[in-house]
């Protein structure tokens, strides 16, 4: 297993501040995640975890601070530009494209910016057909790996909560990501699917992806994370291995009041 510092970090968040009016949801957070590492973020409700994740994903514009990806400053990039640089994410409420089939969900992810291009769909239709064929083959692989083949033509809105989560993760994998952001990735998931998901998160990290995960279920945090950051009131109050942070006095106070 990788220890922190073994590799140059893939994502570096430096003194990040996210404010909503007078409220500082994220108040000067500095963290980094290396390729192949799972960094778990825990903390009570309102600690600023989701805002931090949204700032890294580009959904929220930070008030100040820097976010570097592979050494490149991406602080001001829009979400779709960050996606093109290898960032994928899941959302707290699953974000499936409900009236697209599972397979189409994967195709949209596989084609990414090319899929949204009017030029590629019309004038560049030949190159697009090649990209689509590549994406379809990859989608077929992932459907087999996640045992969702029988559901491939099902509308995503007809899936169970756990299956939707699988589709989100598969969509992320379609993009061969460098950084995967997971917002409560096992919430509302049936136990057997949760187990499958946890195995997948480890496997994704093992393939060299940096994973930044918000999770409330401490058991999941313990099992999946290499390193844990504890947040409270917008700040990092502890950082280390799961066992280290759980012994920290500050963490006990934050959780138990």
């Amino acid at each position: 297993m990788l220890a922190p510092g073994d590799l140059r970090p893939l994502v570096e968040v430096e003194d990040l501040v996210v404010s909503y009016g007078a409220v500082r949801a994220v108040d000067g957070v500095t963290i980094s995640v290396a390729p192949g590492e799972v960094l778990g973020i825990v903390g009570p409700n309102g600690a600023g975890k989701s805002s931090l994740l949204a700032a890294v994903g580009g959904q929220l514009r930070p008030t100040s601070g820097r976010i570097r990806l592979d050494g490149v400053d991406v602080t001001k990039l829009s979400p779709h530009r960050r996606a093109r640089r290898g960032v994928v994410r899941t959302f707290q409420d699953t974000s499936e494209f409900g009236r697209l089939t599972v397979f189409e969900n994967l195709l949209v992810a596989g084609l990414g910016m090319h899929g949204a291009s009017l030029y590629a769909a019309t004038v560049g239709a030949r190159a697009q057909a090649r990209r689509t064929a590549t994406a379809a083959a990859r989608a077929a692989e992932l459907l087999a790996r996640f045992e969702l083949e029988p559901m491939r033509d099902t509308y995503a809105m007809e899936l169970s909560g756990g299956q939707r989560r699988l589709v989100e993760v598969m969509r992320g994998l379609m993009r061969e990501p460098k950084l995967m952001l997971l917002d409560e990735p096992t919430v509302g998931v049936a136990p057997h699917l949760s187990e499958q998901l946890r195995r997948e998160y480890r496997r994704i990290a093992a393939s060299g992806v940096a994973v930044l995960m918000i999770e409330h279920v401490l058991e999941v945090v313990e099992e999946v994370s290499d390193r844990v950051v504890v947040m409270d009131n917008g700040s990092v109050i502890a950082e280390g291995t799961y066992d280290e942070v759980m012994q920290s006095q500050a963490v006990r106070e934050a959780y138990l009041g």
Partner: peptide, 13 residues
């Protein structure tokens, strides 16, 4: 169906 997710997958919404 989900604009934030489409953007997060590289689509310029």
């Amino acid at each position: 169906d989900h604009d934030a997710a489409a953007a997060a997958l590289g689509c310029n919404v």
